[in-house]
Design a protein around this nucleic acid. Structure first.
Lengths: 340, 340
DNA sequence: CAAGATCACTTAAACGTTTCACTTTGTCAA
DNA sequence: TTGACAAAGTGAAACGTTTAAGTGATCTTG
């Protein structure tokens, strides 16, 4: 038989409330609260009794209600440009994992590379009252940042004025890559950059370009979106064989470059050495496995989240920037150039 | 100069509250609420005025407060075993995207393959009061499910008694794969399965095995974890060359198989054809690109989320199972066997 | 023009917590 | 015996909303 008191009423097996716990334990609401939170001063026996009742009723806190009193929701937000870009899952996982250790949950938002969605996402997170945001912005422009005045935020990988940020040493990485190529004997080296409106991309490519120009010839410098699909300009540069090696600003693009080169009967690394940047998981699965620059993405994520909690816990308002080292990971996509 | 009214007081630029909006607009709290929600009956001029005031105050709803009244948090949960498994990001993205279209946010939890963390995750989500959960369980055992009596939940890919579920036609896919191999002329075919405690894995491999046995010889059937790293037993089977083709229950493993075969100088597909299952993004980047069985993961995610909202909106309690078709996507990892 | 009906708006209770202030009881030192 | 103090517990306000019920106006309509 269907119950139907008031139409539209939710099915009745609702979560037990603290008031119910208190009543069935025969204590005041306050005592119940103290018991489940381990605060206040309660006798051991009463506390245990309350806890026991709570357990048997299947009581679970209502974090919304608590948030409204305490101002803390127990949630943080993570804003990313594109989860299907293999660069991000590891980052997300690290953030989630670190948050969990603080008993926090994570709202993950994928902005699909759209600035509008990014703004929308921030709005929503604010309405949810998240206690902090880890933000990997679309670009370095900062219209969206103005919405974030009240929420502790740390930016990853990018630079937005007024926000704490954790980054890798992109210039250092670019240098490392170029150096590796030069040391391998290459003198004519090309660069395939990612989107140039991103500071960290400019940094790595500029550093590489500088080094290359000092020790040899920069054969070309072209730009491609974050994708394995290459723009005509890039294909042309590769086909030209103007370079015996190429530094690519992002692994995803580097994979595309290797694939395209091979499709054009240019052997990698025999005829074209390539080094990438990011050390995404695919990089070790490609053939040949991709030599690349690794940044400690996991550590960066941890640092970002910890910084967030440091901020909220200690109410310190520090504006700093922490930079992680990059390292060269040698695999098989680089070798000495064939003798001219 | 530091402000310090009461020690521990939060920095004061707090979000504007509805009460403040009401006061500065000179109307009652109720009117303000009606205005921002577009409910109730308000004169057009008052409504506009209130909206205007709200805007200038930068008012944003407090969803926690609203949740406590309405019982709806505007959030759903997504529980996944492992974000770094390339199978999942696309799923997560789809869920997030679909949720956004309903103005919902998504708590993403990565359970790292641990049943304990899975339970923990569910607890937390319940405490957050999510309006629904999309659940990709670790396995088909259901201890955790008992915690979920109050929350609308739909399970993806797996089967947990009592839960609505969206799946792909795994058996059909396995059949398709085996058929493809047989039609290519293979008569001795091996199977590398994923973890066998997962029903969907058993289904695809059983279907394949049946078909193979009807049309030729099942050379071996071994098992591996969801990883590119292979167990000794699997390596041995491949090295044995007992089969000219192999069906692998998951692309990730298939990639490992191809890689290992090549490392053993077994050419793929010339000496060993392989077909995978899942069509993860890497599958098209490998060399050779992997022939595999595609399931419409994006559509499945959408269906899962929509089913959730259907449940909460219409208060229907339907227990069903929707199954999506799988398709063969032919790439380059299969060819006719060399003449014996 | 009286009686409803409609419109525009307000009052106040309720949601599930936390926490400050207070009361009661018992202990112990002087 | 008294008073101070600590321990154990309670009462009630507050957090920011939503919404049922109520209140005057103004508008219809016969």
């Amino acid at each position: 038989m269907q119950r139907k008191k008031k139409p539209g009423a939710l099915p009745p097996p609702k979560r037990a409330t603290l008031k119910e716990v208190a009543k069935t334990a025969g204590v005041s609401l306050a005592s119940a609260s103290y018991a489940v939170n381990g605060t206040g001063s309660l006798g051991e026996s009463t506390r245990n009794h309350i806890l026991q009742v709570a357990g048997s009723l299947g009581y679970r806190q209502n974090l919304s209600a608590r948030a409204i009193r305490t101002g803390k929701t127990g949630a943080i937000g993570l804003i990313l440009p594109d989860l299907t870009n293999p660069f991000f899952p590891a980052l997300a996982q690290s953030v989630i994992q670190t948050a969990r250790q603080h008993a926090y949950s994570v709202f993950v938002t994928d902005t699909e590379g759209s600035a509008d969605l990014e703004i929308e996402a921030i709005r929503l997170l604010v309405e949810h009252g998240v206690d902090g945001i880890v933000w990997f912005p679309i670009g370095d422009s900062n219209q969206a940042g103005s919405l974030l005045t009240n929420v502790p935020t740390v930016v990853i990988d990018r630079t937005i004025a007024g926000f704490e940020s954790v980054q890798a040493d992109y210039a250092g990485g670019g240098h490392l890559a170029a150096e590796h190529l030069v040391l391998a004997g290459h003198t004519s080296i090309g660069i395939v950059s990612g989107p140039t409106d991103i500071l960290s991309m400019r940094q790595r490519c500029d550093a590489a370009a500088n080094y290359i120009q000092q020790h040899g010839k920069l054969a070309f410098r072209v730009t491609n979106g974050f994708s394995v699909d290459l723009e005509p300009k890039v294909k042309e540069a590769i086909r030209s064989r103007a370079a015996t090696a190429v530094f690519v600003g992002a692994d995803l693009i580097a994979l595309g470059v290797m694939q395209y080169a091979q499709s054009q009967k240019i052997r990698v690394p025999a005829q074209l050495s390539v080094v990438g940047f990011d050390d995404i998981p695919w990089a070790q699965m490609s053939s040949p496995p991709l030599t690349t620059i690794d940044m400690p993405l996991g550590d960066m994520a941890v640092e970002a989240v910890e910084a967030l909690f440091r901020r909220t816990d200690e109410h310190v308002e520090l504006r700093r920037k922490v930079v992680f080292d990059t390292t060269l990971v040698e695999r098989a996509s680089v070798q000495r150039p064939a003798k001219g």
